[in-house]
Write a protein that binds this DNA or RNA. Structure first.
Lengths: 215, 215
DNA sequence: GTCTATAGATCGATAGAC
DNA sequence: GTCTATCGATCTATAGAC
């Protein structure tokens, strides 16, 4: 789903663009913006620098294309499907929390957060674009789920976008910040499990409609 | 409190170091890491580049010094004093939430978060150092406050560091992320007030000991 | 469209005089 | 300790051949 242009992959030129884009995507996400040179991208794509500039006018333009595409891809994917099922409310919410945390701690998510925030001063629009296309889409999808849960009477009535933000905030804890600061241990299973359990505990204590008997 | 070395400000050399450090501090925080050149720092400090290198071995070293010092300064300051007082629990917690949000959305906080996370791959240790000296100190101070509140019977018993993380997560919402991505509106009074009120609402619903009658 | 080769500019770091 | 002057490396972007 990472087509930069409207072309299909028929023409030779479009395939080159595709290769360039994917190379840039890999390198930006794995090395960061400042450490990724046009020379390296060209090499990774198997083309020359001149060819690269024939398709993307500047490094910033290529960077924007990568951020725009990848943010949407990841945050729009079906990673939040675990909510359906016949389990009790707590189990369902815990699975949802795990899925959210998985997304928030994904190396690509961490990398793009790092890059976009670092370059937000130079790209006033890109930051907003990224937010709308990424994090805000997650909020929207969660809000829709919680809306349903409120209609069903599982959760008490509240602004569903607020509920989504609170849910994310509770589950995230300090794990995403630590991941962004380079703390590898923030991604460990133990840390994640604890964040999910304690976060969901608080979430249900505040938002569960009736009385949720815990484990 | 931003002394890099143990010297006092007596000697001429120490005053020069001080000026260099403060210039670097201003420029790094206002322009970001990659946009701040040694030439610019020297000019801002009123010295030559050679003098600058006589006191700091490299740009990275100067950057580390700035991050290390400023993180501690801000997160250790007495900005959390608003919790004491004779108000009811909700009012107190709301003032605390405002103080936390003020800190999290402070331009310098946003700027250093951006920079450290962006450079975390090159500086494996600096990220951890920053976390311990900054965000983790905030968690610790909040945990101490909540510990007291639990002893007093105002809040129900729980791991106080978890409580602190949940508190921060609830109040922060998506405001700090948006601020880091360059969204100026994230710092508006309206946004902050709403985040404080709705966040505290959920926090008390989950953690208040008895029954907290709301407004 | 794609290549090689290089221009053009920036910047971190240093040499050497005072 | 501080200066001026400059080196050397790196990187973005382009010119011109095929």
């Amino acid at each position: 789903m990472a087509e930069a242009e409207g072309h299909k992959l028929r023409t030779r030129g479009a395939r080159t663009v595709q290769r360039i884009f994917e190379a840039a995507n890999r390198l930006f996400l794995s090395r960061g913006f400042s450490e990724t040179t046009m020379e390296a991208i060209a090499q990774e794509a198997g083309v020359s620098k001149a060819t690269l500039y024939a398709h993307y006018g500047s490094r910033d333009e290529l960077f924007s294309a990568v951020i725009w595409a990848t943010a949407g891809d990841r945050f729009a994917s079906g990673a939040l499907s675990g909510v359906t099922g016949a389990d009790d409310l707590r189990k369902k919410v815990e699975r949802l929390a795990s899925a959210v945390l998985e997304l928030l701690l994904h190396p690509d998510t961490v990398a793009s957060n790092r890059m976009v925030s670092a370059e937000a001063r130079r790209f006033p629009e890109l930051g907003m674009l990224f937010y709308e296309n990424g994090p805000n889409r997650l909020i929207g999808r969660l809000a829709a789920l919680f809306d349903t849960a409120m209609s069903t009477g599982l959760l008490r009535r509240a602004d569903s976008r607020d509920v989504a933000k609170h849910f994310i905030g509770l589950v995230r804890g300090d794990l995403q910040l630590r991941a962004m600061l380079g703390d590898e241990t923030a991604m460990s299973d133990a840390e994640r499990r604890h964040a999910v359990i304690s976060g969901v505990d608080v979430f249900l204590a505040a938002y569960a409609a009736g009385r949720s008997d815990s484990d």
